[in-house]
Amino acid sequence: MTLWRLEWVRLVRSRRLLALLGVYLFLGLLGPVTARYMGEILERFGGDVVVVLPDPVPADGISQFTANAHQIGLLVGVVAAAGALVIDAIPEMSVFLRTRVRSVPRLLTPRLVVSFAAIATAFLVGMLGAWYETVVLLGSVDIGRLMLGTLLTLVYLGFVVALVAVLASRLATVLATVATTIVTLLVLPIVGLFDVVGRRLPSHLLGATDALIRNAEPPAEYLAAALVTVATSAALVWLAARWAAQREL
């Protein structure tokens, strides 16, 4: 039983992997259906109100998925990551591990990597489902731009995991870590309302897939935000390892 296997077992037996895959796949399959039949749905449940919607385009199917994935999916991802990254959540288990590893980064690395891999895989599975249904129901999208948007979203998800790690190293409870992470992620887009700053923030990457597949922005638009996000994530991981090592039990 290695620390890497411990994280895999945690994902599987605590059903976090199942929850992640289930939620993202559900959102992936739901998004294009919602986009395709939104008019009919509103007509059926709208009563006397008449809502006129433009005809759906393929990009709507993907956008519907990403919009849901960046809210519900991300929340599930943050909970799953916090469950692994709050290493002192059970102090007695933490005593067991901390007094046996030679350095805290050795303890933290598998948790970071496996958490990110699980969330990234779940997002990719959801995206795959959304793309398939979009093609079936609405038509094809530019695969190259879709893949680039997906890659930028994965960069953002890496930042989220790093953020969870750094907050977990300070807060030491899963609930506080989840709550603080969510608040931070909500505040970032508000800061991003200032255009000069906003285009360089990690949250700018959230709209990348939608804008790229609609040809609304060139790929270069997201270069600065991607570089800032990667650098920030690396800094957060370094800080998380440092704070976790300094933490007293």
Binding site: M1, T2, L3, L6, V9, R10, R13, S14, I90, E92, M93, F96, L97, R100, V101
Partner: peptide, 18 residues
């Protein structure tokens, strides 16, 4: 206390590995 989803053998095996 140990993670509740681990078996006793896995706890000891983890300690042995570390």
């Amino acid at each position: 206390r140990f993670d509740k989803w681990l078996t006793a053998r896995e706890v000891v095996a983890l300690s042995a590995h570390l």
